[in-house]
Design a protein around this nucleic acid. Structure first.
Length: 147
DNA sequence: GCCAACGTTGGC
DNA sequence: GCCAACGTTGGC
């Protein structure tokens, strides 16, 4: 899961009450579907820092609550407000995540791109813009080995 | 700040 | 349903 560290970083998550927070503001249907339909409580997730001096994977969190409506879509005062999302038929969903640990270093995108066995990973593919994307077991373990 | 690569919107 | 225009993402 990607986040711009200026807006919300892994340190922010660690400092949150109970190390937990909701992953609000996702306004992309593919990413929404993953949160609504696929992510299960306890699933481990990489926390990726995007749009920053050193883009890369900063650490690990886990799903603390499965998909439920993103209430920021209903709130006119937030920048995530979407008048087309009806509380009776919510358009946007989010999950809660819980801090697990921070890596000893950020694993840079450049290294992920260079790794010969990570070529299939969504993150390193050209033009990828999804903010949430799947990682399989093999990729997960390779990345853990790069810390 | 640039710009490629997307996703979304809306006229037709 | 097509597709041009537009807005956004995010690496560099």
């Amino acid at each position: 899961m990607k986040s711009e560290p200026d807006a919300f970083s892994i340190d922010d998550l660690q400092r949150a009450i109970g190390g937990k927070d909701h992953w609000d503001g996702v306004r992309n249907y593919q990413a929404r579907n993953m949160m609504r339909d696929q992510m299960k409580k306890g699933d481990l997730v990489f926390f990726y820092h995007s749009n920053c001096p050193e883009p890369g994977i900063a650490g690990i969190m886990k799903v603390a609550r499965e998909g439920y409506p993103d209430h920021t879509a209903f709130d006119r005062r937030t920048k995530y407000h979407d008048p087309k999302s009806d509380p009776k038929n919510p358009r946007w969903y989010m999950v809660d995540v819980k801090f697990v640990r921070k890596f000893s270093r950020v694993i840079p995108l450049s290294e992920l791109k260079e790794h010969p066995k990570l070529g299939d990973m969504h993150l390193v593919k050209r033009g990828n813009r999804l903010s949430i994307m799947p990682v399989n077991n093999k990729q997960w373990n390779i990345i853990l080995g790069m810390e």
